[in-house]
């Protein structure tokens, strides 16, 4: 654990979370959520949890983003908020 690196990654994660909820276009929100998952994966590698990090990178950032893009393509990508 490196304190400065940890602080920078947590800052990026919080910025990605706010951006994913603030963006109007749903497809953009889903892609920002994928970036959020990868920053989370970097954070866990920095904390020493390597197994959790590669599970997150493959399962949550990979399959989760694919599932959400499939759902957006079946429905609409416009939203009011």
């Amino acid at each position: 654990m490196i304190l400065q690196l940890d602080f920078i990654f947590i800052l990026f994660v919080i910025i990605c979370a706010i951006a994913a909820l603030a963006v109007k276009d749903i497809l953009s929100a889903v892609i920002i959520l994928g970036a959020y998952s990868y920053f989370m994966c970097l954070l866990w590698t920095e904390m020493g949890a390597v197994d959790v990090a590669f599970t997150e990178a493959s399962v949550s950032a990979g399959i989760g983003t694919v599932l959400m893009i499939a759902a957006v393509s079946k429905t609409t990508r416009r939203s009011k908020d």
Binding site: A17, A20, L21, I26, A29, V30, L33, Y36, S60, G64, M68, A71, V72, T75, S79, K80, D81
Partner: peptide, 13 residues
């Protein structure tokens, strides 16, 4: 948030 997909994004966070 009022959109259902946005709610799912919030649950993931």
């Amino acid at each position: 948030k009022r959109n259902l997909i946005k709610k799912v994004v919030g649950m993931s966070i």
